[in-house]
């Protein structure tokens, strides 16, 4: 069995409302990442000191990967769980996380999701059942547990587990696929193939070209979506989510996506031969053009979406900056419940 490879958009055009929703979600996510990029680099100088500034530490931004999050999360409600990675913002945003609390956490403030204890790789949000892990592939097993709880309670809630293609070579990835299939857990496994695991190209790390083929080894459907096409992601995720909600068990979707920027901020990407061409593959202008052509979007619609996104994001940044820095005297709090 070889996994299906979806390389052309669905023939039946999606409803205009759905298409607009996908576009809006991608723009909100991109607008957010651009704002974090700006804030992150605003005060790292002179030179680049990773520990300096209002947003210190490693910063893995998701620009270019919005089609994956938008296409998958369009099928979810905030009752469904998402476990994401070290690069979590696009999934958090598309899953409906409160941007104020999320941003305050990234700024390390008391109104953040983790009151400044977590940071950008450790966003835990009970309101949207969202979590992430900075340890590659280790976000998969907890997704099984959320799915297990949903299944036990007789609900049709599901869990979505996200990793990069680099993570597909980790033991936790394979243990999780087997266990989820064995117990028919309502999980959708999503692999974001952005060609690179930091500086290691997927062909230098992975024995087969298509991680969706690995699904067959665990007796579950696998689909690979080419072209970073949000509507193809939406279609594949729709099938996988429906299967999970119906109690038929897990599926695996790999999306060939794009890392528009560096692995993390400060990455000069000297290892990346295709660097010069990367911007022309940006999925958002491409989708915008397609929607204009289809008559779903016009100048007014585009600026409305962008202005709304920008206002929302800037409000979140303001909220974060206004939130107090945690009091050092509270450093011992929250170790135990």
């Amino acid at each position: 069995m070889t996994a299906d490879v979806i390389s052309s958009p669905a023939t039946d055009a999606l409803e205009a409302g759905v298409r607009r929703g996908l576009y809006d979600a991608m723009v909100l996510s991109r607008t957010y990442e651009e704002a974090i990029l700006r804030e992150y680099h605003a005060d790292k100088g002179p030179g680049f000191d990773i520990g300096k500034g209002l947003v210190p530490g490693e910063m893995h931004l998701s620009a270019g990967q919005e089609p994956v999050a938008a296409g998958v999360c369009a099928h979810l409600t905030t009752d469904d769980a998402v476990t994401a990675t070290h690069r979590p913002h696009h999934f958090a945003i598309c899953h409906g996380m409160d941007l104020d609390k999320m941003t305050a956490e990234i700024f390390g403030r008391v109104d953040g999701l983790g009151r400044g204890r977590g940071g950008h790789m450790h966003l835990f949000d009970p309101a949207t059942h969202f979590s992430c892990s900075g340890i590659i592939a280790e976000g998969y097993p907890p997704a099984l547990g959320a799915a297990f709880a949903f299944q036990r309670r007789g609900t049709d809630r599901i869990a979505v587990a996200v990793t990069g293609e680099g993570a597909a070579n980790q033991g936790a990835f394979h243990e999780s696929l087997n266990l989820a299939a064995l117990w028919k857990l309502p999980v959708v496994f999503v692999v974001e193939d952005n060609d690179w695991a930091i500086s290691v190209a997927r062909d230098d790390s992975t024995a087969i070209p298509n991680n969706a083929d690995r699904a067959a080894a665990y007796g579950m459907p696998g689909e690979r979506v080419e072209d970073n096409d949000v509507e193809a992601v939406y279609a594949a995720a729709g099938r996988a989510v429906a299967r999970a909600r119906a109690g038929d068990g897990p599926s695996l979707i790999e999306v060939h996506t794009l890392r528009l920027w560096g692995h993390f901020e400060g990455d000069a990407q000297g290892y990346r031969p295709e660097l010069a061409e990367v911007p022309e593959h940006d999925p958002i202008p491409r989708y915008e053009a397609a929607l204009r052509e289809a008559g779903v979007l016009d100048d007014g619609g585009v600026s409305e979406t962008k202005e709304r996104a920008s206002a929302r994001v800037e409000a979140a940044i303001e909220f974060a900056k206004a939130s107090p820095v945690p009091d050092p005297s509270t450093v011992l709090d929250y170790v135990f419940a």
Binding site: E138, P142, G145, N178, L179, L182
Partner: peptide, 23 residues
Amino acid sequence: DTPISETGFIGLAVGAATEGMRP
């Protein structure tokens, strides 16, 4: 009874616990 997948099933317990179960 679980498969011999300690990362998988201990992680499953973590996720179930965050959803309110007591594994």
